[in-house]
Design a protein around this nucleic acid. Structure first.
Lengths: 208, 208, 208, 208
DNA sequence: AATGAATGAGAATTCATTCAT
DNA sequence: CATGAATGAATTCTCATTCAT
């Protein structure tokens, strides 16, 4: 995807990870635009010239970082579906994991949400495709719930979008929420709301 | 707030509005960082020198634009509460208006969400305060609903945050939603979900 | 032709001349490619930022210099035709002037001949057009000589090209000629050869 | 001349030829300054590191190319003198061959004429010496013609310079000539002019 | 002898901001 | 109050050359 001057693909992976790590530190402090390539090189402990052997342009670093964050965030999400007992618990577990994940990567996700626009069209679409596929995964789960008769959700596509959107409420609105409420409280209300929205059969979910 | 060299406050207002309008056009096309002051001046039909009589630094323009967008967005929201018949309809109406509003200002809101970080601490907090006060207003409505016995919401503060967050789902996730669903569909599901979440008494809301 | 950020056209002319002069000094010493914009700015006694208010890119400076040199070189060439007595003398005078001119601008012409290639297509063509028009002028003179019956030249277009080419022999081959022969000697032989080539009627030209 | 790290002189020759060929392709497309060593290495199918075993610096490649072109251009010129019948025909033949040669190597010669300046003093002088020696050869021919009584040329050194200069009119001014005239036409006029200039005894040369 | 990864100096260009008029 | 010319620090990126393997 990213054009490099280096042939050894193992090395490319290693160095790009190195650059990615270095860049994230700088981006955290200064944001993408105010981070200079020189700083990123220094923070990556790589020379300016070498850095450009592993990327083509500054934006490529942003792409690397995007990919890296999404990879961490979405790591193993497909396995989660298999682990837990009955379907509703499975689902609750999934929301819970997703929420903790997004909260854990709070700053990274905020970064992604504010800087995806700085990618060029092609790279942006690749990133959005990854996010899309997570929504699709959730949509599939909701449909399965419908089939199993535990949910009754008319528009799984829309709900999947709402649900994944709600998961990032902490990264995007934490500044207003966290001074007053804990992540736990937020999560419990979210789960309750989501389950109600899905018209779960049986006992309503009682927030702890 | 913004330090100007000009004393005539009426003129300052007029020119700042002029700058704001010019800047928004440029920001739309290029984003904040890639918009040069020269372009903004040209687009505002004001000379480069004059521009700096009405602002101190580039960031001030971003602040002007933020204020302007939020003002448009939140214009008259307090009146809405008064207009409509019973409380639930009132509430539905409010959500509906809010949703249409945010969808109408879709690009502007996306801009705000991605560029608030570029404001310095002081200006950023002033902007966030405005957003906060909208959440507070919603929180107040929910509490009133509780008092009137039409809602049963244990954590109005959290719900207010969820609700206001959901209103901007189109600006932030429209890229994934709008290719598959209409704004109308989205809105109906949102209303239904929100009302369920608030444990509204009586008939459940049926999405159109 | 060159896009500037400055509106005052008089000032643009003045500054561009200033830049042109400064650049020529640097080009003389280092050539076009090894001359840095910084040096050119310094040599022009203009700040780096200001320099870029009067040009768009480095190549524009090359274009300015080209134009300037050709202007000096071709200054008043059209008037020369009118000044002198009989047609042959007129012609000889013209060759003489042309030769001295090119010899005077020896370094500048060598520069042009080696760096025209560095202009982009559009600018290069504009420069070549100027050179063309001088050839056309010479062609006209030869045709007039034919009409007046003092020359008998079958292919004035070709001769005009040969003649103008011969005029730059000093700039291009001076390194081999001047150590052994004087410019005068060269010139006399050129005139003699050219007149023979044109089949001038009457007494042959005797080189001094 | 060029300092190499490799001892095997046969290999050095082979690789330098290889580099030369690769470089010429790149120079053709981009010119000397815009050709990067990387590209040249790739075009020569030699590794970047190896390349520097056979040259010391970029300029050395330019020198190799210069030499190579001049070698091709001047290949066998000394033999030509011997081949043809009477002296004038011999001479005409020589001019003809020289002209076709320079036209054939049109782009290469233009390259040489515009880039010799990029050689350092030492290398430049070596190249110029080669060109000089061709002029000297022509000078010798003219003197021989004088001795044989077929020419009457007072300044063979000057004429040799003029003549060799005229031979490169196509590479240097083809852009203005070739759109209107054929190489053949040009050549015929050149021969006619040169012979007149040499005061050839007997019938004048009639251009075809 | 061959490879290709590493280096950092230096290039062109942009741009927010100031200031003389 | 308005204008727009002037400034120079800072930015991204390139490239000849070196060196460890």
């Amino acid at each position: 995807m990213i054009k490099t001057k280096i042939k050894d693909t193992e090395l490319v992976k290693k160095r790009q990870k190195q650059i990615c790590r270095g860049a994230m530190k700088v981006f955290q402090k200064k944001g993408y635009h105010d981070a200079s390539i020189r700083e990123i090189a220094k923070s990556s402990r790589i020379s300016l010239g070498s850095l450009y052997d592993y990327i083509e342009k500054k934006e490529d670093i942003l792409f690397l970082v995007h990919n890296n964050i999404l990879e961490e965030l979405y790591r193993d999400y497909e396995e989660i579906g298999d682990k837990y007992g009955n379907y509703i618990n499975k689902f609750i577990k999934l929301v819970r994991e997703g929420f903790y994940n997004t909260s854990f990567f709070r700053e990274e996700l905020l970064f992604i949400y504010t800087e995806t626009k700085s990618l060029d069209k092609e790279n942006r679409q690749e990133i959005l495709k990854k996010e899309s596929s997570y929504v699709d995964f959730i949509e599939g789960l909701i449909e399965e719930g419908n089939r199993q008769g535990v949910f009754e959700c008319k528009k799984p596509g829309i709900y999947a979008n709402i649900l994944t959107f709600l998961l990032i409420i902490i990264p995007l609105r934490g500044w207003n929420i966290l001074p007053r409420f804990s992540e736990e409280e937020m999560l419990e209300e979210l789960i309750s709301m989501i389950l109600k929205g899905l018209n779960v059969k049986g006992e309503p979910y009682i927030p702890k």
